[in-house]
Design a protein around this nucleic acid. Structure first.
Lengths: 206, 206
DNA sequence: GGCAAAATGGACTCGCAAGTCCAAATTGGA
DNA sequence: TCCAATTTGGACTTGCGAGTCCATTTTGCC
């Protein structure tokens, strides 16, 4: 096991991951072969297996990690600063923007579909992403409760879960239909529900 | 082109589709080969290509259609009868139940991920499913508006889109985490939002 | 019963893509 | 400078699975 990577080594490894990610975004997981990655990144077969001894699965898992990081990075810092209604609106726009730019592909979802069963770690990557994501949303809701902008009786965890689910579904629908209306609807209805809560009774108990 | 299928022919064709669907549910799209389908359904290679001349893609598309039909069938008749709050609750339970039973797989989503790019028709199948689904939900919301249980000023289309997105996302999260909490949250929060709407706006004629 | 069309069996081809292997070049540290 | 470890090049093997082909059987119809 090569535990020691030189500076050059880590650079090559990273280049492979990013090249593979780009290839997958363009042509899909199914159509992407190791030779494609090799060609695009200007590497050789032995390098691929040198940095990813377990082969394609290991590489795809690394790509999944990379994409998962990007999902959160792309909505920061707004995601971490949900402290006023304008801030919520800014985050909402940021999310819509990100997926608008991404067009029809949802590489992470496709990756999970592709390697989810064979590579247990893949689901863990997605699970962790969702957990972090929801944690930040929930923190935002709690903050709004603290400053009196959201009904303090609301179950923040449940509301955060519902909002996160809406976003995920909105992206999924967008991939199928090419239209972003559902993502916008999920965000707008979700946030409107938070705002309106102050003026009505707590939502139904679980 | 064999346009004429005998009774036996359609039966075999259907057996192939259902066998393939079962195989895919159990082992995933990626791992399912034509030989697996052949083995499970007790057919021969020539039969597969006889009934699906375009090969695997055509078969998978047929399986996608089959699964899409099941999605809606499994939530009927409740989905078509959203005419009172108990009816909404019954539908909600039905959906939760369906996905609880299905456990971790979301064969349709995986199918689309797998053949979406190469087979344009696949996305169309999913799009149509979503369209029908949302149509029924929206019809339910409009009915509740008509009988004065939901704020008539609400945008039923948008609310339906948000609810549908929540369900999709809830299922997606469930596939990753194995837990159904998000699906329930999306349904409960979504429906609660509908109910609360009436009490939020200034009263209108019922 | 006879015939054309449809259904079936299964061996075979063939290309592709993952993974192996060894040799060569480069690097980094003492 | 020298040595060991790391990085790189690329030809080669190998297995698998989609798709082809033709021979045989069964079916539907008159």
């Amino acid at each position: 096991m090569s535990r020691t990577l030189t500076r050059k080594g880590v650079a090559t490894r990273q280049r492979i991951i990013e090249g593979a990610a780009a290839e997958i975004r363009e042509r899909g997981v199914v159509a992407t072969t190791l030779d494609d990655v090799r060609g695009r990144t200007g590497t050789s077969k032995s390098q691929l297996f040198h940095y990813f001894p377990d082969g394609k699965d290991e590489l795809l898992l690394a790509v999944a990690r990379y994409e998962a990081d990007r999902v959160l990075d792309d909505q920061r810092p707004q995601l971490s600063e949900l402290t006023s209604w304008p801030a919520w609106a800014a985050w909402r726009d940021r999310v819509v923007d990100r997926y608008l730019r991404q067009e029809l592909d949802c590489p992470l979802n496709d990756l999970i579909s592709y390697i989810g069963r064979s590579t247990p770690g893949a689901l863990a990557v997605l699970t962790e992403l969702l957990h972090t994501w929801q944690g930040e949303i929930t923190a935002g809701i709690r903050h709004m409760q603290r400053i009196g902008e959201v009904d303090p009786g609301m179950d923040a965890e449940q509301a955060g879960a519902a909002l996160l689910a809406g976003i995920q579904g909105g992206v999924m629908v967008m991939r199928a239909t090419g239209r972003i209306a559902h993502l916008e609807a999920a965000l707008d209805v979700g946030i409107a529900g938070l705002r309106a809560s102050r003026r009505r009774e707590p939502s139904r108990p679980t």
